[in-house]
Design a binder for these strands. Sequence first.
DNA 1: CTAAAACCCTGATGCAGGATTAGAGTTTTT
DNA 2: AAAAACTCTAATCCTGCATCAGGGTTTTAG
Lengths: 279, 279
Amino acid sequence: MDDKMMKIGEMAQFNRVSIPTLRLYDKVGILKPCYTDPETNYRYYSIHQKARLDMIQYMKELGMSLGEIREILEKGDIELIESTLISKKRQAKEEIAQLQLRLGAISRAIESVERFRKAPDCGMITVEYIPHRKVYVMHTDTNFYEHDISVYEEILEDLKENLIGQGLPQVYYCNAGTILEREDFLSLRMVSHEIFIFVDDNFPDHDSVRNIDSAMYACIYLDSFDDEPEYAARLLKYCQDHNYTISGDYICEVLTEFNVFDSERRSMFLRLQVPLKFR
Amino acid sequence: MDDKMMKIGEMAQFNRVSIPTLRLYDKVGILKPCYTDPETNYRYYSIHQKARLDMIQYMKELGMSLGEIREILEKGDIELIESTLISKKRQAKEEIAQLQLRLGAISRAIESVERFRKAPDCGMITVEYIPHRKVYVMHTDTNFYEHDISVYEEILEDLKENLIGQGLPQVYYCNAGTILEREDFLSLRMVSHEIFIFVDDNFPDHDSVRNIDSAMYACIYLDSFDDEPEYAARLLKYCQDHNYTISGDYICEVLTEFNVFDSERRSMFLRLQVPLKFR
DNA sequence: CTAAAACCCTGATGCAGGATTAGAGTTTTT
DNA sequence: AAAAACTCTAATCCTGCATCAGGGTTTTAG
């Protein structure tokens, strides 16, 4: 015989797999040693079995589970091979798409952290240019300014449900905010029935998607939802003192939200803002 | 108290997670219920804990493990958050790259199956146009035509090692082949010291990478390595009978290789080919 | 030839992030 | 008060191995 029998260690080294792996493959039945000593249970492999091991490794690289590999090897059916490959292709595409979304989300999170580190002090008022943004808006029956935090949590949960219902990845859920109509802000009536989250520019257009035009904004920074009415009033006073013309709706934007510092409540960093029109 | 205490079931439903998940989060210490009845061990959650659960889910979507999440939640350190995010970003990119390669490999495998299904009979001779191809070549000291299959297996293993050494994904390993110099083929000397595999067109250029120009080829199909010399002779005779001018090296190309049909040896589908020059 | 080194065996456990189930206790509804 | 609905702990399962522990086998060195 030209068949040089190899013990499991040689076989493993020859194919750059581990010994436990070969034993596992034996157990699940995808690569049985061509001879097993009935006395000692030692496994002996033939050089020809390398071909099969190659095939197994190749199929694994294609993303197949050992179960799928076994099925294919058992049936040896070309149709099954093809249908499995096609399903693996779809799967790989889906995973890539998922990871792309994740990557985007991570990048936004990193940006958010950066913003947090360089955030101005609470109460600081600025006038700054804010580029175009896109938001996904949900209308609510209740005015959450009238209620306590638990209502806000519920509404947020509704928004999440809404998004998932649209088949959108939850990963967009990060920075939520609210919108107050211009007139309400001007008279400091804290009444809002709109909650939103920011979405990518390439987010598909939709009834619930609203574009917020770029503009100069008067902004005030704060770090708690509870203080919003007070800070909104300060912002309004600032605009009046400077004779600025408020040209659109008021936005309460959650810049960052790290629930890591306080296990009890949300700890946030907010920016209240109103668009201005000059001349 | 405006704190409505929720039992685990309500909390789970409210946040669309499973009950075992909440229990797990309790156990690993990333989300402890705000009150646990010491008599019954019932867990009671506050609505405010939703924020933290949101954060956990968000971090999970970013690809963090529960251990990493715990670390972040425990330390609440912005530096740690940022470094974790950055490492997750790198990780996600790597995974995407891996999946892209897999996707390409799957597509090639599907093509290979297609080719197998529509393959001509053994012994069929054709003259066909074959587009440009790129191969990764390895030179060998031994002439594997002189030896039996085990030497071929070893050389193949060397090739694999070679590829991995280059940092190339093993997934390219699929269709190998051999090259015979023109003169050797003309006198039917089966002597080859070159084994290769096909690589993508965008594979980086390299000493070992060789381009095979597009051309018309005389081809013969067969399904076993053992018959190669006989079929090579038939191919040569065919070319001579038709007065074709052989313009380059002979290639033995493995079209498909399914080690699923025969657990003992490689079962393949081969195409022997020589480029022709007309006029 | 014998002792030591190197190998091999089975079977158990661990990893991650839960799902599922069993058996027993608790709360809520009828 | 009984039944239904809920909760508890603890165990087991999933994947694809890695890593023991405890005990046999083969090979090599002296």
